[in-house]
Design a protein around this nucleic acid. Structure first.
Lengths: 210, 210
DNA sequence: GCGTACCTATAAGGTAGATTAAGAAAGAAG
DNA sequence: CTTCTTTCTTAATCTACCTTATAGGTACGC
């Protein structure tokens, strides 16, 4: 029955905090946490609700928080000298987002992070993350793996940018992130791929032939 | 005198192995190692001498070794369907090189890693690196930081690829890696920047005006 | 010393993709 | 419903960059 699984009647020693449940499940999938580690995660990660079009980072700010997306969708982008936006990254459920360069060097960021939907996030302060690394060594392994995975996709994308046409990049994007299809506009995808929205439109036309 | 600094006459408890000295100094700069950690590094990293044009990874191989460059210079590249090479990365003294995607997933690599000069490297096997992470937790922190730094430059490069012209990318490359100037040919740099060597040549001409 | 291989430069013609503009469609707001 | 904003499309013109080709320069093996 639904009731029993929700009420957790049981002999549980520690009652899980509802807001942080998604991130704890996420960590558990990478490397199971013990009770002490669960408690510290619940302590240092703070929930925030973010409205569509709201920023969680703006150019000039130092990025002092690392962000885990519980629900919703974000884009991180650069605004160039002509006022054009260039999307570096999207983030949906169970993704991390933040300007790691600014986060580590404490230099002002050149990026914006903006919610594309009403969203729920969990954030950790830099000092808390450092504390985590020093006092709970397991998180070094966890974040090493997360960063490695991010680096692999980042390198994939560089290779594509220097070796593939816009059409190939678009097809690969759609294959890799089919769940973005109904959620992210073509304008945003074009900006991510590094082409103009008009040209993306002509690319798309090639496949709609019926 | 030179002699005394070299002979290390002293009351040293442990005599440092010469081949691994560069990587130990490198690690020490990130996070000081204790004697036990130094010994394990000396045990798991193996020195190899690589001739110019020799490969340390070829397409189809699984990348089973992580490589630290002691001396020399490497390029890592993709060969596309038309037989063209696209440089993903260069590596000189104190840099790491390897296909981390293949290394972690154990899938065949699509990349080549080739020596551009006669070189000396230190390599660690995947199983030894995992052992390092489990048994000597400090290396999780060290490699987390190394990977973070790699990710930051990788993201910088993506942003540049989607937002800058070839000329801007070339100028930035030269500013960021001036020591590559006499060491890496323009053909190789063009392949890294994602432009044809001919076009790089016309870009360069714009600045040689005297 | 010479040949071979590779690197750089220059030029002409071609193409992928940008820019500008303008209209149709579809949400969101009021 | 109307109005405003955003999105998608189409087409014409323009430009950054590619391709092909040619030739001189430089390094290296023998």
């Amino acid at each position: 029955m639904a009731k029993s699984s929700l009420s957790g009647s049981c002999n549980q020693l520690y009652r899980i905090k509802m807001e942080t449940k998604p991130i704890i499940e996420y960590f558990n999938r990478l490397l199971p946490l013990n009770e002490e580690e669960i408690i510290i995660v619940e302590t240092v990660f703070k929930e925030r609700k973010i409205k569509r079009r709201q920023f969680i980072l703006q150019e000039g700010d130092v990025c002092k928080l690392n962000t885990f997306v519980v629900e919703g969708c974000f884009k991180m982008y650069l605004v160039d000298g002509n006022g054009k936006e260039h999307n570096l990254q999207f983030a949906i459920e169970n993704w991390w987002i933040g300007d790691i360069g600014s986060f580590h060097t404490e230099q002002p960021s050149k990026l914006y992070i903006e919610a594309m939907e009403n969203s729920i996030i969990l954030q950790i302060k830099k000092e808390d993350q450092l504390k985590l690394f020093v006092e709970y060594p397991k998180f070094n392994r966890i974040f090493r793996v997360i960063t490695e995975n991010a680096l692999v996709s980042s390198q994939r994308r560089i290779l594509q940018n220097i070796s593939s046409t816009a059409e190939e990049r678009y097809l690969d994007f759609m294959e890799r992130y089919p769940h973005f299809f109904n959620r992210i506009s073509n304008v945003q995808i074009a900006s991510y791929l590094g082409v103009s929205p008009e040209f993306l439109s002509t690319i798309r036309k090639r496949f709609v032939k019926s």
